[in-house]
Design a protein around this nucleic acid. Sequence first.
DNA 1: ACGGTATATTGAAGATTGTCAATATATTCG
DNA 2: CGAATATATTGACAATCTTCAATATACCGT
Lengths: 122, 122
Amino acid sequence: MTIQSEQRPTGSTTIPGCCAPAFDVGLTDDEAAQLAEKLSLLAHPIRLRLLAILARNGGHVCVCDLEAALPVKQPTVSHHLRLLRDGGLIEGERRGQWIYYAVRREELAAIQAALAQFFARM
Amino acid sequence: MTIQSEQRPTGSTTIPGCCAPAFDVGLTDDEAAQLAEKLSLLAHPIRLRLLAILARNGGHVCVCDLEAALPVKQPTVSHHLRLLRDGGLIEGERRGQWIYYAVRREELAAIQAALAQFFARM
DNA sequence: ACGGTATATTGAAGATTGTCAATATATTCG
DNA sequence: CGAATATATTGACAATCTTCAATATACCGT
């Protein structure tokens, strides 16, 4: 024959051919789920911009500032702020009529560390 | 009065009170959209595990291996592989009956760099 | 207390995503 | 060619996400 018979090189199974999970899996079910959840929180342009604004002006930005800076209406801003707050990434402090938000650096650093670990394992 | 009148310190507007976008915005509309797109691609447990497996066993893993290692059916594996391939993160090479996937390190590094830049700006 | 402003919540509607059975396509072997 | 295996695609369905108008809540100044 002209074409060489392909043989799957994957080891340690009795069945020749395919589908022997003898390889390195790398990420636990739980690890993947947790990291995916953190990434999902970041994976939205409005939330990224919210974080960026707050990180650089922390403690001095109220919701109306954010609404003015972003192309969405006030309920949408509040919605994303809530997601970020529930995810532990930001916190809000009421000062008078306004609520000032700021990034929680520790949590942000935790995500950064989780990502670094993920990439390190690649 | 006992309570001090709150005054928004945000500068450079003629309107006293609120909503003067004099602060640092930090992320362009486009930058945020692009980064969010990359993050969305990563933000799924199955895709994270696919990447981890492929990164550590690159070029030696066929779809049936992946299906065996993950808690989803074959069409779902193919679906996520397609998303990753369309996103430039992996590539597949047909060898005989099987198609072997591998991570594209450059693209993965690009995402890592984009993330690093994002966190650096925080 | 009242009117005004800031923010949150609710509810609805549309868009996107995730999963899988069924089916199609490609490849190998006999 | 025809059967068997590997992978991709289609189509349907459910779940989740995104946005916003309408409304509610909280606070301020008068």
